[in-house]
Amino acid sequence: MTVRALTLLLLASLTASTVYSSHVQAKKEQATIAVAANFKLTLEGLILDFQADAPNFSFQLVSGSTGMLFAQIRNGAPYDLFFAADAERPEQLERDGVARAGTVATYAVGQIAIWVPNRTQPWQDFFREHRGSLAIANPALAPYGLAAMHLLETGLFDNEPKLIQGTNVHQAFQFVDTGNAQAAITSLAQLIQAGATQSDFYLPALNDYPQIIQKRVLLSENTAAEALLIYLGSARAQRLIESAGYKTASSLEQPS
């Protein structure tokens, strides 16, 4: 008797919670976004800013490396929107018919920076005399690592530094932050997020390395995702992206 009563109670509460949650979902437009690790914090800030005006939209972020997210999406991961750290992966998804046709666009252009905390020499002397280690993101995995390799090929350092590879710019940063490496080529965005002192980093000229074009693509028909993309095109959002350490397509068009 008690067992039957308990079962009934359980069933009733299950039904109630399902009805309740579907009711809530009907009110709130939700989207799941896959975002490359380097843009995650910036996107979180943008979403907060967006939600201040549009509280009925909610977003769930899944962050990881572009390659990993790409593999997940190809294998059916239920994401509505994908912010990649490169141009290639979103374009590939569009060609494969996994993404919605005609929705690939550049949302940010990455900048690399050389970070040397507690630098004692002027930059020119540092580049001439540095003989220690230099942490970079793995060039095979991360566009920022590839850009770093190109920068090194311009002969920036007089002596070839010992290259330590992290899986991404965050790990390259962490190797220096923990004191295990002396210098890193990381992203400007990472340094701004970490609150690094401006005199501790060096910004190479944009044409010294291939542009790190980061593209996004829509993966499903989703109201929340589409609304967010419209917001990201606004001048206000573009300014936020630039202050986070990225160039935007519009800022690159104007000669500075």
Binding site: S65, G67, M68, F70, A71, N138, A140, L141, T167
Partner: peptide, 8 residues
């Protein structure tokens, strides 16, 4: 192996 998977 990790690098190969990540670079497809």
């Amino acid at each position: 192996l990790f690098d190969y998977v990540e670079t497809l």
